[in-house]
Protein backbone atom coordinates (compact mmCIF):
# COMPACT_ATOMS: atom_id res chain seq x y z
CA UNK A 1 0.00 0.00 0.00
CA UNK A 2 2.97 2.28 -0.43
CA UNK A 3 3.34 4.98 -3.05
CA UNK A 4 4.66 3.51 -6.25
CA UNK A 5 7.47 5.47 -7.88
CA UNK A 6 5.78 4.76 -11.20
CA UNK A 7 2.90 7.08 -10.29
CA UNK A 8 3.94 9.75 -12.79
CA UNK A 9 1.27 12.27 -11.99
CA UNK A 10 0.23 13.04 -8.43
CA UNK A 11 -3.34 11.86 -8.31
CA UNK A 12 -4.51 15.11 -6.74
CA UNK A 13 -3.56 17.09 -9.84
CA UNK A 14 -6.18 15.50 -12.09
CA UNK A 15 -9.39 16.58 -10.33
CA UNK A 16 -7.89 20.01 -9.66
CA UNK A 17 -7.33 20.61 -13.37
CA UNK A 18 -10.68 19.18 -14.21
CA UNK A 19 -12.44 21.60 -11.88
CA UNK A 20 -10.42 24.52 -13.29
CA UNK A 21 -11.53 23.48 -16.72
CA UNK A 22 -15.14 23.22 -15.60
CA UNK A 23 -15.01 26.62 -14.02
CA UNK A 24 -13.67 28.23 -17.20
CA UNK A 25 -16.28 26.46 -19.28
CA UNK A 26 -19.15 27.40 -17.02
CA UNK A 27 -18.01 31.01 -16.72
CA UNK A 28 -17.72 31.38 -20.49
CA UNK A 29 -21.12 29.84 -21.09
CA UNK A 30 -22.65 31.90 -18.30
CA UNK A 31 -21.43 35.25 -19.68
CA UNK A 32 -22.61 34.43 -23.19
CA UNK A 33 -25.90 33.08 -21.90
CA UNK A 34 -26.50 36.09 -19.69
CA UNK A 35 -26.11 38.53 -22.59
CA UNK A 36 -28.56 36.51 -24.71
CA UNK A 37 -31.05 36.16 -21.86
CA UNK A 38 -31.14 39.87 -21.06
CA UNK A 39 -31.59 40.81 -24.72
CA UNK A 40 -33.95 37.95 -25.57
CA UNK A 41 -37.38 39.60 -24.94
CA UNK A 42 -36.60 42.18 -27.64
CA UNK A 43 -36.27 39.43 -30.22
CA UNK A 44 -38.67 36.73 -28.98
CA UNK A 45 -42.19 36.93 -27.59
CA UNK A 46 -41.70 37.48 -23.81
CA UNK A 47 -44.55 35.22 -22.67
CA UNK A 48 -42.98 32.33 -24.54
CA UNK A 49 -39.63 33.07 -22.90
CA UNK A 50 -41.28 33.23 -19.48
CA UNK A 51 -42.87 29.85 -20.11
CA UNK A 52 -39.40 28.43 -20.79
CA UNK A 53 -38.08 30.04 -17.60
CA UNK A 54 -40.87 28.56 -15.47
CA UNK A 55 -40.30 25.11 -16.88
CA UNK A 56 -36.53 25.49 -16.54
CA UNK A 57 -37.03 26.18 -12.85
CA UNK A 58 -39.45 23.27 -12.55
CA UNK A 59 -36.99 20.92 -14.26
CA UNK A 60 -34.11 22.19 -12.13
CA UNK A 61 -36.15 21.43 -9.01
CA UNK A 62 -36.87 17.95 -10.33
CA UNK A 63 -33.20 17.49 -11.21
CA UNK A 64 -32.18 18.24 -7.62
CA UNK A 65 -33.97 15.05 -6.68
CA UNK A 66 -33.16 12.69 -9.53
CA UNK A 67 -29.70 14.01 -10.34
CA UNK A 68 -28.32 14.52 -6.85
CA UNK A 69 -30.32 12.16 -4.63
CA UNK A 70 -31.10 9.51 -7.22
CA UNK A 71 -34.86 9.49 -6.56
CA UNK A 72 -37.23 9.32 -9.53
CA UNK A 73 -40.42 11.12 -8.55
CA UNK A 74 -43.41 10.61 -10.77
CA UNK A 75 -45.51 13.09 -8.81
CA UNK A 76 -43.90 16.47 -9.28
CA UNK A 77 -47.00 17.84 -11.00
CA UNK A 78 -48.62 17.89 -7.56
CA UNK A 79 -46.09 20.46 -6.36
CA UNK A 80 -46.06 22.47 -9.58
CA UNK A 81 -49.85 22.48 -9.86
CA UNK A 82 -50.36 22.86 -6.13
CA UNK A 83 -48.11 25.91 -6.20
CA UNK A 84 -49.97 27.30 -9.23
CA UNK A 85 -53.40 26.91 -7.58
CA UNK A 86 -52.16 28.32 -4.28
CA UNK A 87 -50.61 31.40 -5.89
CA UNK A 88 -53.58 31.95 -8.18
CA UNK A 89 -55.97 31.75 -5.23
CA UNK A 90 -53.88 34.08 -3.07
CA UNK A 91 -53.53 36.62 -5.87
CA UNK A 92 -57.09 36.57 -7.09
CA UNK A 93 -59.29 35.78 -4.09
CA UNK A 94 -57.19 37.17 -1.25
CA UNK A 95 -55.73 39.99 -3.33
CA UNK A 96 -52.18 39.38 -2.13
CA UNK A 97 -49.29 41.25 -3.79
CA UNK A 98 -47.45 39.16 -6.40
CA UNK A 99 -44.28 38.57 -4.37
CA UNK A 100 -46.26 37.12 -1.46
CA UNK A 101 -48.56 35.17 -3.77
CA UNK A 102 -45.64 33.43 -5.43
CA UNK A 103 -43.97 32.70 -2.10
CA UNK A 104 -47.24 31.17 -0.93
CA UNK A 105 -47.13 28.85 -3.94
CA UNK A 106 -43.62 27.75 -2.99
CA UNK A 107 -44.70 27.18 0.62
CA UNK A 108 -47.67 25.07 -0.43
CA UNK A 109 -45.40 23.08 -2.76
CA UNK A 110 -42.96 22.45 0.10
CA UNK A 111 -45.77 21.47 2.46
CA UNK A 112 -47.20 19.00 -0.06
CA UNK A 113 -43.65 17.71 -0.47
CA UNK A 114 -43.32 17.17 3.26
CA UNK A 115 -46.55 15.16 3.41
CA UNK A 116 -45.90 13.14 0.26
CA UNK A 117 -42.25 12.65 1.14
CA UNK A 118 -43.19 11.35 4.56
CA UNK A 119 -45.03 8.45 2.94
CA UNK A 120 -42.74 7.89 -0.02
CA UNK A 121 -39.18 8.48 1.15
CA UNK A 122 -38.51 5.02 2.55
CA UNK A 123 -39.39 3.34 -0.75
CA UNK A 124 -36.72 2.53 -3.26
CA UNK A 125 -36.57 2.75 -7.05
CA UNK A 126 -39.76 1.99 -8.93
CA UNK A 127 -41.77 1.78 -5.69
CA UNK A 128 -40.84 5.36 -4.93
CA UNK A 129 -41.97 6.40 -8.44
CA UNK A 130 -45.25 4.51 -8.02
CA UNK A 131 -46.12 5.89 -4.62
CA UNK A 132 -45.34 9.47 -5.66
CA UNK A 133 -47.56 8.96 -8.71
CA UNK A 134 -50.38 7.60 -6.57
CA UNK A 135 -50.15 10.46 -4.07
CA UNK A 136 -49.99 13.03 -6.88
CA UNK A 137 -53.15 11.53 -8.39
CA UNK A 138 -54.85 12.08 -5.05
CA UNK A 139 -53.84 15.74 -5.21
CA UNK A 140 -55.23 15.83 -8.76
CA UNK A 141 -58.62 14.53 -7.64
CA UNK A 142 -58.72 16.99 -4.75
CA UNK A 143 -58.11 19.78 -7.26
CA UNK A 144 -60.81 18.37 -9.54
CA UNK A 145 -63.40 18.26 -6.75
CA UNK A 146 -62.52 21.10 -4.42
CA UNK A 147 -64.61 24.28 -4.80
CA UNK A 148 -61.73 26.77 -4.74
CA UNK A 149 -59.92 25.36 -7.80
CA UNK A 150 -62.74 26.11 -10.22
CA UNK A 151 -63.04 22.53 -11.49
CA UNK A 152 -62.60 22.15 -15.25
CA UNK A 153 -62.22 25.91 -15.75
CA UNK A 154 -59.43 26.35 -13.24
CA UNK A 155 -58.68 29.77 -11.77
CA UNK A 156 -58.75 32.32 -14.59
CA UNK A 157 -57.92 36.01 -14.91
CA UNK A 158 -55.42 35.99 -12.09
CA UNK A 159 -54.28 39.60 -11.63
CA UNK A 160 -50.56 40.14 -12.16
CA UNK A 161 -50.58 43.20 -9.93
CA UNK A 162 -47.76 45.52 -9.01
CA UNK A 163 -44.44 44.56 -7.53
CA UNK A 164 -42.84 46.35 -4.54
CA UNK A 165 -46.03 48.08 -3.42
CA UNK A 166 -47.00 49.51 -6.80
CA UNK A 167 -43.58 50.35 -8.17
CA UNK A 168 -43.40 47.86 -11.04
CA UNK A 169 -46.42 47.15 -13.23
CA UNK A 170 -46.33 43.44 -13.99
CA UNK A 171 -49.04 43.65 -16.62
CA UNK A 172 -46.23 44.94 -18.85
CA UNK A 173 -44.73 41.75 -20.29
CA UNK A 174 -41.20 43.14 -20.40
CA UNK A 175 -41.31 44.04 -16.69
CA UNK A 176 -42.65 40.65 -15.77
CA UNK A 177 -39.99 38.98 -17.90
CA UNK A 178 -37.17 40.39 -15.80
CA UNK A 179 -38.97 39.47 -12.59
CA UNK A 180 -39.46 35.89 -13.78
CA UNK A 181 -35.84 35.84 -14.89
CA UNK A 182 -34.77 36.87 -11.39
CA UNK A 183 -36.99 34.21 -9.78
CA UNK A 184 -35.61 31.51 -12.06
CA UNK A 185 -32.04 32.66 -11.50
CA UNK A 186 -32.65 32.52 -7.76
CA UNK A 187 -34.08 29.01 -8.07
CA UNK A 188 -31.18 27.75 -10.18
CA UNK A 189 -28.74 29.32 -7.75
CA UNK A 190 -30.54 27.64 -4.85
CA UNK A 191 -30.15 24.24 -6.52
CA UNK A 192 -26.48 24.95 -7.19
CA UNK A 193 -25.95 26.09 -3.63
CA UNK A 194 -27.61 23.00 -2.16
CA UNK A 195 -25.65 20.65 -4.41
CA UNK A 196 -22.34 22.28 -3.47
CA UNK A 197 -22.95 22.51 0.25
CA UNK A 198 -22.12 20.28 3.22
CA UNK A 199 -25.68 18.96 2.92
CA UNK A 200 -25.07 18.26 -0.78
CA UNK A 201 -21.92 16.34 0.11
CA UNK A 202 -23.98 14.08 2.39
CA UNK A 203 -26.56 13.60 -0.38
CA UNK A 204 -23.80 12.54 -2.73
CA UNK A 205 -22.45 10.05 -0.20
CA UNK A 206 -25.93 8.59 0.25
CA UNK A 207 -26.36 8.25 -3.50
CA UNK A 208 -22.96 6.61 -3.87
CA UNK A 209 -23.39 4.04 -1.10
CA UNK A 210 -26.43 4.25 1.13
CA UNK A 211 -25.64 1.37 3.55
CA UNK A 212 -22.20 2.82 4.13
CA UNK A 213 -23.69 6.25 4.85
CA UNK A 214 -26.01 4.60 7.39
CA UNK A 215 -23.12 2.75 8.99
CA UNK A 216 -21.37 6.10 9.42
CA UNK A 217 -24.36 7.26 11.43
CA UNK A 218 -26.34 9.23 8.84
CA UNK A 219 -30.10 9.03 9.21
CA UNK A 220 -30.43 8.93 5.45
CA UNK A 221 -34.23 9.21 5.31
CA UNK A 222 -34.06 12.67 6.86
CA UNK A 223 -31.56 13.93 4.30
CA UNK A 224 -33.63 12.51 1.46
CA UNK A 225 -36.78 14.04 2.89
CA UNK A 226 -34.99 17.38 3.22
CA UNK A 227 -34.00 17.29 -0.43
CA UNK A 228 -37.51 16.20 -1.40
CA UNK A 229 -39.07 19.16 0.40
CA UNK A 230 -36.60 21.58 -1.21
CA UNK A 231 -37.34 20.13 -4.63
CA UNK A 232 -41.09 20.36 -4.00
CA UNK A 233 -40.79 23.94 -2.75
CA UNK A 234 -38.90 25.02 -5.86
CA UNK A 235 -41.42 23.20 -8.06
CA UNK A 236 -44.16 25.12 -6.21
CA UNK A 237 -42.26 28.34 -6.86
CA UNK A 238 -42.17 27.46 -10.57
CA UNK A 239 -45.92 26.70 -10.53
CA UNK A 240 -46.76 29.93 -8.74
CA UNK A 241 -44.69 31.94 -11.20
CA UNK A 242 -46.39 30.17 -14.09
CA UNK A 243 -49.80 31.11 -12.66
CA UNK A 244 -48.73 34.75 -12.58
CA UNK A 245 -47.38 34.70 -16.14
CA UNK A 246 -50.38 33.00 -17.75
CA UNK A 247 -52.83 34.43 -15.18
CA UNK A 248 -54.17 30.93 -14.99
CA UNK A 249 -54.03 27.74 -12.93
CA UNK A 250 -55.74 24.66 -14.36
CA UNK A 251 -55.94 20.91 -14.00
CA UNK A 252 -53.22 20.60 -16.67
CA UNK A 253 -50.74 21.85 -14.07
CA UNK A 254 -51.49 19.00 -11.63
CA UNK A 255 -52.12 16.24 -14.18
CA UNK A 256 -49.73 13.27 -14.40
CA UNK A 257 -48.71 14.35 -17.90
CA UNK A 258 -47.01 17.34 -16.30
CA UNK A 259 -44.93 14.96 -14.15
CA UNK A 260 -44.01 13.11 -17.32
CA UNK A 261 -43.09 16.32 -19.09
CA UNK A 262 -40.64 17.40 -16.41
CA UNK A 263 -38.98 13.98 -16.48
CA UNK A 264 -38.68 14.32 -20.25
CA UNK A 265 -37.12 17.79 -20.04
CA UNK A 266 -34.60 16.75 -17.42
CA UNK A 267 -33.60 13.57 -19.25
CA UNK A 268 -33.25 15.43 -22.54
CA UNK A 269 -31.09 18.16 -21.07
CA UNK A 270 -28.99 15.91 -18.88
CA UNK A 271 -29.62 14.50 -15.42
CA UNK A 272 -27.24 15.70 -12.74
CA UNK A 273 -25.94 18.67 -14.74
CA UNK A 274 -26.89 22.17 -13.70
CA UNK A 275 -27.62 23.63 -17.19
CA UNK A 276 -29.26 20.41 -18.40
CA UNK A 277 -32.81 21.09 -17.18
CA UNK A 278 -32.72 24.59 -18.68
CA UNK A 279 -31.71 23.27 -22.08
CA UNK A 280 -34.28 20.47 -21.86
CA UNK A 281 -37.06 22.87 -20.88
CA UNK A 282 -36.22 25.24 -23.73
CA UNK A 283 -36.15 22.39 -26.23
CA UNK A 284 -39.48 20.89 -25.17
CA UNK A 285 -41.19 24.29 -24.96
CA UNK A 286 -39.86 25.24 -28.39
CA UNK A 287 -41.02 21.97 -29.93
CA UNK A 288 -44.47 22.37 -28.43
CA UNK A 289 -44.64 25.95 -29.61
CA UNK A 290 -43.67 25.28 -33.21
CA UNK A 291 -45.76 22.17 -33.63
CA UNK A 292 -48.78 23.45 -31.74
CA UNK A 293 -50.25 24.87 -34.96
CA UNK A 294 -49.45 21.85 -37.11
CA UNK A 295 -52.02 19.12 -37.61
CA UNK A 296 -49.47 16.56 -36.45
CA UNK A 297 -49.91 15.66 -32.73
CA UNK A 298 -47.19 17.37 -30.74
CA UNK A 299 -46.86 14.51 -28.26
CA UNK A 300 -45.68 12.25 -31.07
CA UNK A 301 -43.06 14.80 -32.09
CA UNK A 302 -41.70 15.17 -28.56
CA UNK A 303 -41.80 11.41 -28.18
CA UNK A 304 -39.73 10.95 -31.32
CA UNK A 305 -37.23 13.64 -30.30
CA UNK A 306 -36.99 12.02 -26.92
CA UNK A 307 -36.28 8.61 -28.42
CA UNK A 308 -33.68 10.04 -30.78
CA UNK A 309 -31.95 11.82 -27.89
CA UNK A 310 -31.94 8.75 -25.69
CA UNK A 311 -30.43 6.69 -28.49
CA UNK A 312 -27.88 9.30 -29.59
CA UNK A 313 -26.82 10.76 -26.25
CA UNK A 314 -27.70 8.77 -23.21
CA UNK A 315 -26.37 11.42 -20.87
CA UNK A 316 -28.72 14.05 -22.23
CA UNK A 317 -27.61 16.96 -24.37
CA UNK A 318 -25.59 18.87 -21.78
CA UNK A 319 -24.32 15.68 -20.18
CA UNK A 320 -23.02 14.46 -23.53
CA UNK A 321 -21.34 17.76 -24.39
CA UNK A 322 -19.60 17.87 -21.00
CA UNK A 323 -18.56 14.26 -21.33
CA UNK A 324 -16.98 14.80 -24.78
CA UNK A 325 -15.20 17.97 -23.67
CA UNK A 326 -13.80 16.24 -20.63
CA UNK A 327 -12.54 13.25 -22.55
CA UNK A 328 -10.36 15.41 -24.74
Amino acid sequence: MDARPTDLMPAAAVPARRSDFNRALYTGLAVLGLACIVAAPFAIYPVFLMKILCFALFAAAFNLLIGYVGLLSFGHAAFFGGGAYASAHALKVWGWPPELGILFGAAVGALLGLVMGFFAIRRQGIYFAMITLALAQMVFFVCLQAPFTGGEDGIQNVPRGFLLGGLIDLSVNLNLYYVVLAITAFGLFAVWRVVHSPFGAVLQAIRENEPRAISLGYRVDRYKLGAFVMSAGLAGLAGGTKALVFQLATLTDVAWQMSGEVILMTLLGGIGTLPGPVVGAALVAALEHYFATSSFPVTIITGLVFMACVLLFRRGIVGEVLHRLRRR
Binding site: R193, V194, H196, S197, P198, F199, G200, A201, V202, Y218, Y223, G226, M230
Partner: peptide
Protein backbone atom coordinates in the same frame (compact mmCIF):
# COMPACT_ATOMS: atom_id res chain seq x y z
CA UNK B 1 -21.37 19.95 9.06
CA UNK B 2 -24.15 17.90 7.58
CA UNK B 3 -27.36 19.89 7.23
CA UNK B 4 -26.05 23.29 6.17
CA UNK B 5 -27.46 23.55 2.67
CA UNK B 6 -26.91 27.29 2.43
CA UNK B 7 -23.15 27.23 2.94
CA UNK B 8 -20.44 26.50 0.44
CA UNK B 9 -18.94 23.05 0.62
Amino acid sequence: LTTQFWRSS
